[in-house]
Design a protein around this nucleic acid. Structure first.
Lengths: 247, 247
DNA sequence: CAAGCGGGTTGACGTGGATCAAACGCCCCA
DNA sequence: TGGGGCGTTTGATCCACGTCAACCCGCTTG
């Protein structure tokens, strides 16, 4: 896997260092003081562009850095020997990818760009060193890892205990919230992943995802045009989740 | 939730401090030098006994410490409003519980003892402080968190992409490996959880778990007597996993 | 010793989602 | 401008697992 477009630190690059970055509130620096954030500028050494469908890393790649998504989006997945794929997450701007690699010094999943994207490279040795010095960074990093664990528990709940329409409703609500946090519309957005990828994430086949979308549309909950989604009745979607089994 | 049996540090307690503990290779200190481990003795302040079916913590409890299982075992679970339960993991001696609490300073799942158990209390503030000073501890803790994330991905794979018998086979193989790591028999062990809890973890109903056990027994893969399991054909179990769909 | 109970097994039956198959629409490219 | 392909939708059928129910077993309690 040849690296590509690793941008060295330059005056140019500094424009997008943490202290100047508008993703601060979504990313690793969240909650840190301005002074502490300044220290991160030296940490985030370079950026890297990844084109749609290209890998940021693959299973087995040696682990050297974690990545913060700057623009674009990714999926992470694991594969079974027989080719079955499980998408373990979708990552948007400000979110951290690569934490899976710490445990064995090698990545245990694949990270693939869903669209042309770019990431900040955070060399892990440097991160550990700096977080020994900057308490707020240390704590923030621990929160990021813990948040990932909590998120994973939510996905387990979804995969283990919910039916198809509940899963898709949960997915749409989650996407809506994440778009909102990024300043986009809560009600109208463009999904970057295919029905098959959504299905893999939700433990469903693509046909089931498609049918659930159609059902939601019939019920006036959403409007679907390909990957473009408009939520027309967010309360209705949420009701699908807190729904006591209708007696 | 009243705490119970919080044992203060005493000469008595020191006998079981990290430096003397026989769970070193399974627990937080794994891979640390003897000198560094000595420093942990001051960190792990106290222990706590939890009786079968009692909670170590509940959803919403403020987060103050993580816990290392010393003896016994636990389950962690999350609940839906309508009462549906998802078991997110089973924890055995040496394993760390409570990482979910870091992200919001409150626990996001319940931890319940499956049998009379006891845990080492690791106050989180102290852990962060010490890991700013002891590089190997810092790194080890990061590995523990990352391992949890990787484990969760495995469960997602299981819940999202495997059929019932594959899930149960994966579960049994995993239990066998963990018992082996603790010096117990790989082939014969006693499950501490009910069929319903196994089912919840695996995204199956208890009847399905029971039937899969029976099927495995019919096929000579295992011998089942209530919670006592003897694995008679581990290769056969593993084959269920790497099994290409039998065209 | 009987009664009660929680956990487990097993059977009969129902169903949600998978599978198989066909057709459509958008988009890329010649 | 017209074809070809991928992603999607939709229909018909199938089946793995859920549901409902009966019964068993080992333990506890009176």
């Amino acid at each position: 896997m040849p690296h590509q477009a690793v941008v060295p630190i330059t005056a140019e690059a500094l424009k997008t260092a943490c202290s100047q970055c508008n993703l601060q509130e979504l990313c690793l620096p969240f909650g840190m003081s301005d002074g502490d954030i300044d220290q991160l500028d030296g940490l985030v050494g370079a950026r890297r562009k990844i084109k749609r469908h290209q890998h940021l890393y693959r299973v087995g790649d040696t682990f050297e850095a974690i990545y913060a998504v700057r623009t674009g989006s990714f999926k992470t997945d694991v594969l079974l020997e027989d080719g079955r794929e499980q998408v373990t997450g979708f990552q948007m701007s400000g979110e951290i990818i690569g934490l899976d690699g710490i445990s064995t010094d090698a990545h245990t999943c694949n990270a693939v760009a869903l669209e042309d994207s770019d990431v900040c490279i955070i060399p892990f040795d440097n991160l550990e060193k700096l977080s020994r010095e900057v308490e707020s960074l240390q704590h923030q990093f621990h929160k990021v890892m813990s948040r990932e664990i909590v998120r994973d528990h939510g996905v387990m709940m979804l995969l283990g205990s919910m039916r198809a329409e509940e899963r898709l409703a949960a997915f749409l609500i989650n996407m809506s919230q994440r778009f909102t946090a990024r300043g986009f519309s809560a009600a109208e957005f463009h999904l970057r992943m295919t029905r098959e990828e959504i299905g893999s994430y939700l433990g469903l086949k693509l046909e089931t995802v498609s049918r659930a979308f159609s059902r939601f549309q019939e019920n006036g909950l959403i409007k679907v045009q390909q990957k473009h989604i408009r939520i027309q009745n967010i309360a209705g979607l949420k009701a699908l989740l807190s729904h006591l089994p209708s007696v």
